[in-house]
């Protein structure tokens, strides 16, 4: 099928080891590939959640209201200062204690990744906003533009252009890191390849296949990011 001839003939023989045999996972490939959709769903929804929450937090951080600033700083500090896998496990396994219900693994994964990336994204956006020339704010103020509109129409669009590379990086990290949802049993690419490994008693091939899928996804994201960046730079 799709398997290169060299691999079929098991030439990758390592002494004391087992030859690589991709043929045996061919029937399982569609099963692993279906995980792409699972991973994408988590990454996209968590990414959107993280982005929106990140914008709100960044506005808190640069705003004048002390309490909000403190909340946003504390939030960022906690979510950046503890392991993501810990946050994921707390949200999933401790949800009956925390919320009185057992939430779905999906929901837990989206929440954990969304909340976590919001902390990182808020720092990225904050830096992006501060990098916008202060004169832009003054010009908007001098025209009588209210703060909210100024942020939305004048400052944020310019900040976005500055932060796009860093933001893309965050989404790439998110895509890769999403593999840890396997610990709460979400059947994403990672989990599925692990299941195939256990079925065939041969882990290397399905794991390498999963690696290839992740790599291609990251490449696609990188290209998409370059394209968006190019479009946004048209006014330069």
């Amino acid at each position: 099928m799709l398997v290169p001839a060299v691999m079929e003939h098991s030439l990758f023989l390592i002494e004391g080891g087992k030859p690589m045999n991709f043929e045996q996972i061919v029937p399982s490939m569609p099963f692993i590939l279906q995980g792409i959709w699972v991973t994408l769903q988590i990454v996209i929804i968590a990414g959107i959640l993280g982005f929106i929450l990140g914008i709100i937090l960044s506005l808190f951080k640069i705003g004048r209201i002390k309490v909000l600033r403190w909340i946003a700083d504390a939030y960022t500090s906690i979510f950046r200062g503890t392991p993501l896998v810990l946050q994921l496990m707390i949200i999933y396994f401790a949800s009956p204690q925390l919320f009185g219900i057992q939430i779905e693994p999906y929901t837990a994964a989206i929440l954990a990744f969304g909340l976590n990336s919001a902390a990182y994204i808020s720092e990225i956006i904050r830096a992006g906003i501060l990098a916008v020339d202060k004169g832009q704010q003054e010009a908007a103020m001098a025209l009588g533009v209210p703060y909210n509109k100024m942020m939305k129409d004048v400052i944020l669009p310019q900040a976005m252009k500055n932060i796009l590379p860093a933001l893309m990086n965050e989404f790439i990290t998110l895509t890769k890191e999403s593999a840890i949802v396997t610990v709460i049993g979400v059947t994403d690419i990672m989990r599925r390849s692990y299941i195939v490994g256990s079925d065939t008693f041969s882990f290397l091939e399905p794991l390498l296949f999963a690696g290839l899928i992740y790599y291609v996804m990251v490449l696609v994201l990188t290209v998409a990011g370059k394209w968006v960046e190019g479009r946004m730079r048209r006014s330069d």
Partner: peptide, 21 residues
């Protein structure tokens, strides 16, 4: 309310501060 004032008083800056986007 300064906003009310500023829509009645225009200002031109040394460094223009046009919106680049």
């Amino acid at each position: 309310n300064p906003l009310k004032l500023r829509s009645n008083v225009g200002m031109v800056f040394q460094h223009f501060h046009l919106f680049p986007h």
